[in-house]
Every structure is written in C-alpha cells, then in structure tokens.
Design a protein around this nucleic acid. Structure first.
Lengths: 346, 346
DNA sequence: TCAGGTTGCGCAATCGATTGTTTAAAATTG
DNA sequence: CAATTTTAAACAATCGATTGCGCAACCTGA
C-alpha cells in the first residue's frame, strides 16, 4: 500500500502563483527573494503544513543528512550508550541516524554495510564484529568520499577515523591496581586476540606483570570467544579448583567479571580477600553486584558524540583532516569498588 | 564536502548500449527482458560494483523502505532490546531503521517526529515520553497513510496499532504473589499516571489488594516522576522509617526495586523476610543484585519484532487491518527470585 | 501471405527539491 | 529621459530509478 502524496513546493507554487524555484529559495531565505515574498510563502507553508521531502533534496544534492551506524548488538550497555551519544550529537545538527546490527556475524556486517551504502549515508560509524578480519566492505565508502569512523573495536592498517580508549593503559592500570592490593597470581579473561581492544588489554596486563617482576603464567590466561557469563563462570570454576588458584582476576569485560564474582561466592570464596576481581566497561551490573565490582570506566556516550563530530567535521571541511589527527584516544579511569579494594576492608 | 557521484544505471546503460529502463528492469528480473540480456546486465553491474541509489527509488516510488523509531532513551535495557528486535525483523525484510530519541522531552519528541516524517519513513514505531500528553504530532503520518505503531507506552483514544503487555494482569499477579508470601502491608512505587503502563500497574496492584480484602493505604503508594534509583532510594528510606513500615514493595520498574533492596540492606533489613520486593522489566541488574530480584518478564525483543511485523503487514495489504485487531497484547510472566520468595528460605 | 499476437526493448515522463541562467521590471545614474 | 545597474522571480536542467506506452521484429495459424 503506497503512501498518499504529500503537499509539495509545487502545490504551494500553484496556490500562491509563484514558481517552485521561488518557493524553494524563499524557504531557505535566499537573498534574491524579497522579504515580503518570503513572509508570504513561509506563512502559507506553515498553514498548509508543508514539510520538505528530504529524499528529493538528498538526491538532488547528492548528500543525505543521514549517518549510518553499524554495530554488533544494539542491546548491550556499551553499545546502546554509544548509539545514544551518536544520536544526541547528530540530531542536534539536524542529522538522522540509520542503525544496523551485525550480531557479530561477518556476513551480516557486509550486507549491512551495503544497505547503508545504498541509502547513501553521508558518513558511517562502525564497530567491528567478533568474526571480522577483512574490512574490504568499508572501502566502498571511501571510494565516494564518505567518511568512515571506527569506534572501540577498530581495524589495524586502515587509514580512517578512529575513536578509541587507551585499552593498553587501562589494562595496565587495572592490573597494577590488583598488584598493589597484594595479588600475586592474577588471572586474565581475554577476548578474541585479532581485535585491538582485547589484544591491547592483554598486553597491558602482561606488561604490568612484567613491570612488577611477576612471571606470567599461561594457565592463568583464558581466551574466550564471546566473553559471555557462561564462559566467565566456567573459567572461574576451572581456575579456582587448580592447585595454584588465582588471587586476582582482571576481566576484559564486566559480564565475565560479574559471573566470576557470583561463581566465587557460590563456592565460598571471599571477595576481595581471597580473590580480588576487576572488570572493564562500567556496565550497570557492575555497581549492583555484591560486592560492587571495580572496573574501567568506558566513556561510551562521549565516544558516540565524538564519532558524530568526526563525521560532521569531515563533511564541513575536508581540508582540515590533516590538522586534527584522525585518531582520537579518550580518557578512561579505574573505578575502584569493593571487589578489589583490600585496603579499605572493615 | 560533497560525495563523489557514484556509478548509476545510466553509466551502465551507456557502457552496454542498452537504455536505462532496460537496465532497471533487468536488475529486477522483469519478465519483458530476455534471460540473456538479464545475465549480461547483472554480470556487468556486479563487475562495475553498481549499487542502487535507494533515495532515487524511494522518491520515484513515493515509498521508502525505512522504518522510523522514536523512543525515549536508547540506552535503557528495555528500549535497546526493543530496538534490537525491531532491527532484526526489519533487516530480514530489507528495511532500514531510522532512530531518534526524545530523552523524555515533549519538544524533542515533536521535532523528532517531524524529522522522521520529512525522511518519508514508510512507518513509525514510537513509545511515548514521560511528558507527552498530546499526540497531535503523530497525526501527520496517518494523513499520508503511514502506519503508526505505539509500543509499551501508548496513548489512549488514538486509533492505531498498539503493541503492549498486559500491565494490569502482570501487576495483579505480582501483587498477588507478595500477598501469597504473607505480605500484609504492600507498598507500590508508581510512575506517572497519565501513562498507560503505570496507570494499569497501579490498578492491578489495587485490585489485587481488594481481591484479598486488604485495605489500600495511600501512604504506601509513592508516585514518582522518573522512577530513578535516587527516587527509589529516597522513597524506601522514608517508608521504612514510618511507624507502620511496609513488608513488601511492588515497584513499577527494576531500577527502583534494586535501589530499594540496596537501601533496605544498608539499613539492616532482611530481604525477603522483613520486606519482600518485586520489580518490573527483568533488566540485567535484576538477576545480579543480591538477593536476586523477582520481577515481571518484559518481552522486549519479541515486542520489537511484532512492531515491525505490524508495519510490514500494513504496507503489504491495507485491507487486512480489520481482520487482525490493531491491538496486540503479549504474554508476560512473573520471574520469582529470592527477593520475594519466602517459602524457599533455607 | 497476412492479420493478429508475442517478445524485447527504448522513449519520455515522473517523483520533489535545487540551482545556474535568463528575463522582466524596477531603481538608479548621468 | 535614456542608459545602466539592481532586484525579483521564472525557466529549465538535474539528481537516479521507475514505469506506462509505443514500436519494431519475430512468430503463429489460417
């Protein structure tokens, strides 16, 4: 069932005895239209409930005010906050956002990228899926000069905009914090190592150990596919039952960290006395679990806003791109809560 | 900075010595184009990396394959899952989704609705903001036969598609459950009463009390503006310090329920022995808090999918709309966890 | 062999807004 | 008052895909 046709500048032109071009110009205060005419036209437009058809304008201008957003899963705390930030910054400037999720499937990611391209988005913001190793599907955008901003999970060796946090430093600090609390055997729940975020977090962890002359123990490093609660629970159960269990765990996300806490509690371990735990992201669950989870603040909203700004900045002046580096690294910080705070125990 | 022009059917036509109309028809397997020609054209299109411009097609057809989604806040568990469901069902059918958030501001909601209208969405899915009492801004869609689906927070007296749960029944059951657990003085954290969801939940609560011959006590009913953690904490603190404190709380969302639990624990009350608590939504925090929170399952993903189906159903056959009622009420159920389960105490 | 039918494809208008180029009228100048 | 400049608005092409209509070329059967 088709939509009914809506009221256009042609209808308005006929009604007021002006040409469509005059209507168009009047509505955007073009200097060659007299003030009186502008007033007449705007008044009539408002009365008739005229609404511009942005499809037509976009087609003509070869420029849509729509930003494409391609994420893994919309309903995750970090992602939904990221999108919220993107949307806020975009709508403030009159841009719309078109959203697509890949569910961490490479095939979906490729077809979503195509769909966004076909919609002629003026820019695209993406975070890579777990499976993604090849990023050819983003090159089509560059070929028509549509800016691509990768956020959080970004590819290496692809010269485009990036918005990330310093995963290495955050992980280093988190691990160091555990060491300061007296942990000697620190486990690490790592994510897929072809993704920058998890690779950097692992490296930060390793370097913090090295810096403190702690020999890394591979049996304490668990690399997980999806960093799910189930994986976290299973890994915790396995590690804690060994002859040399960990006394601290640095997890690559809060989901596994919380599941570790729950599993440890169930088995009668005290947190942080027996095992100190620190997560990553500051998801809502991290402050609710008992004891509250220490974690790394992830500025999701801010990252989203910055992504939008990068797109808009590129569109407004393509020349400046060399001035500002294309790489943005946002500040994070540790949030120390009870799950790792051995010094403030009552 | 404008985008570069991309490769069009005209370019393809020139290259292959066919007319643009033949290209267009061939690409969609029109019967009047020979199999051989179709093959030639499709092959060339693939080689040249031709991608259709959906803006042009939408303009011509007066029909975009884009669904507008207007929510209050993207980064809330229920909403992000709802969007995820909408997106999944939409992308499966080749539809895109354009998202806008109102942040519960009426002004934003109105301007977002305008923006979505201007983008000529083929349908719109919306959940009302806290401030919204007037819904004139949704009538423009009906005027050009664009279907409007309200979900969860829906208006009364507006004849359009609705996707909701039975808030009344869920609240009735939740309250009844508390009564079965032996609660005599059950408090209720209510939301803004001009919104159907909170009004129905309150009514279900009241009727459950009445059914069990419990006199309602207005001092136990707290109506909140935003049902935030702060409000929940404050209300809990106030209620528990009265001479006749509640022994059960039915909260209109999980956020306030969790904050109630935390506040009660901090004050030394046992849950559920002293106070049983039940929330609404089944947010991730509900299963993490200690004790785990009993709550009402809210089928967010399913609701989202159904919203999309309603839109697509309307578009494919406008006649059927009388067959299926425009109102869809989805099933919910209680999730009983420790926060209210007095019978399974060890 | 020819009227009538089918097949395969091109022509040209259309969707609604935008904009470079004209044109007509009004205002200014000498 | 004629010449020139300024002002105001119209004309027409354009963006890319779609589609009703028309028109050859070919096929069919009588």
């Amino acid at each position: 069932m088709k939509q009914k046709k809506s009221f256009t500048i042609y209808d308005l032109a006929r009604k007021l005895n002006y040409s469509p071009s005059t209507i168009s110009r009047a509505l955007k205060n073009h200097h060659s239209i007299s003030a009186k005419t502008i007033e007449i036209i705007k008044k009539a437009a408002a009365e008739e409930g005229y609404r511009p058809n942005v499809l037509a304008a976009s087609l003509r201008n070869n420029q849509s005010k729509t930003i494409g957003v391609l994420v893994t899963r919309i309903n995750r705390p970090f992602i939904s906050s990221l999108i919220s930030g993107i949307e806020s910054a975009a709508s403030k400037e009159g841009y719309n956002i078109l959203i697509s999720q890949s569910n961490d499937s490479y095939t979906n990611e490729v077809s979503s990228a195509k769909a966004l391209f076909d919609s002629r988005v003026c820019g695209i913001i993406a975070t890579l899926g777990m499976e993604t190793e090849n990023i050819e599907h983003f090159k089509q955008f560059e070929s028509i000069n549509v800016p691509v901003v990768f956020v959080d999970r970004v590819p290496v060796n692809f010269d485009t905009y990036n918005v990330v946090i310093d995963n290495y430093k955050a992980a280093y600090d988190a691990t160091n914090h555990l060491i300061e609390q007296g942990c000697k055997r620190i486990a690490h729940f790592a994510g897929a190592q072809h993704l920058n975020v998890y690779k950097d977090r692992k490296q930060g962890y390793l370097d913090a150990l090295a810096q403190n002359n702690i020999e890394p123990d591979n049996t304490l490093i668990v690399t997980m596919h999806s960093l799910s609660a189930e994986e976290g629970k299973a890994a915790t159960a396995r590690l804690i039952q060994t002859s040399t269990p960990p006394d601290g765990i640095f997890c690559s996300n809060d989901t596994t960290a919380v599941s570790a806490i729950l599993e440890l509690k169930e088995r009668g371990y005290r947190i942080p006395e027996d095992v100190a735990v620190i997560g990553f992201n500051d998801d809502p669950i991290s402050s609710i679990v008992s004891p509250p989870l220490s974690t790394v603040f992830h500025p999701a909203l801010e990252m989203g806003e910055l992504c939008t700004k990068r797109i808009l900045g590129h569109l407004s002046n393509a020349e400046n791109e060399t001035k500002n580096s294309k790489q943005s690294k946002l500040e994070t910080h540790l949030i120390i809560r009870a799950s790792s705070d051995r010094k403030n125990l009552n």
